[in-house]
């Protein structure tokens, strides 16, 4: 089970489109404000939620598997949780194992970089004049890793021979609010 002691603040399960991305973000923002979370932490949470949701949006909107319904394939979960020490942004979606390999390589790469190396990589990718065919900048994982300050965690659960469920977790320290 994922982070068993964490309380759920915002939960979404379903198909993601540009309208509900905005609604979920509004919900995250208003709950974070109502919960009295300090500005600096609230901004980190919001920024990470934006990147995580837009990753879901860009990478699941055209996901199809022959013989399976598109709705079933494109269903995602998003969750904003907290426990005593951390806030968590958690997403999950279905993907092909071959795509997971690529994601895992990227995650392992950014997870192993120091603060300085991440800053350098961010600048390098920012200025490389490349955008993915889905409009992604290739900066999402780097940015989330920098904002979180912790390794980006993930789980991979094979469902059958051709599909797996990918769960992605970003932690934000509760006690690092700047004075």
């Amino acid at each position: 089970m994922l982070i068993p002691t964490a309380q759920e603040i915002v939960h979404f399960s379903g198909l993601i489109d540009s309208l509900n991305v905005v609604e979920i973000l509004n919900d995250v923002e208003s709950k974070a404000q109502a919960g009295g979370i300090g500005n600096s932490t609230r901004k980190k949470i919001f920024n990470i939620a934006v990147e995580a949701l837009q990753n879901l949006y860009h990478h699941t909107s055209d996901f199809t598997v022959e013989g399976k319904s598109d709705d079933e394939m494109r269903k995602v979960q998003f969750s904003f949780r907290e426990d005593e020490s951390y806030y968590y942004i958690i997403t999950s979606n279905l993907l092909f194992p071959k795509h997971f390999k690529i994601i895992e390589e990227k995650l392992n790469f950014v997870n192993n970089l120091s603060v300085e190396e991440l800053k350098e990589l961010y600048r390098k990718v920012l200025t490389n004049n490349q955008l993915s065919n889905k409009g992604g900048a290739g900066l999402g994982f780097i940015d989330m890793r920098r904002k979180s300050g912790y390794e980006l965690e993930y789980f991979y659960d094979p469902i059958d021979q051709e599909l797996a469920k990918f769960t992605f977790i970003v932690k934000i320290n509760k006690n690092k609010e700047k004075e």
């Binding site: 901004k43 934006v50 837009q54 955008l131 900048a137 900066l139």
Partner: peptide, 12 residues
């Protein structure tokens, strides 16, 4: 106040 990584390249 906020910008996403996809905007960051266009701001550049």
């Amino acid at each position: 106040e906020y910008f996403n990584t996809s905007s960051s390249k266009y701001i550049l």
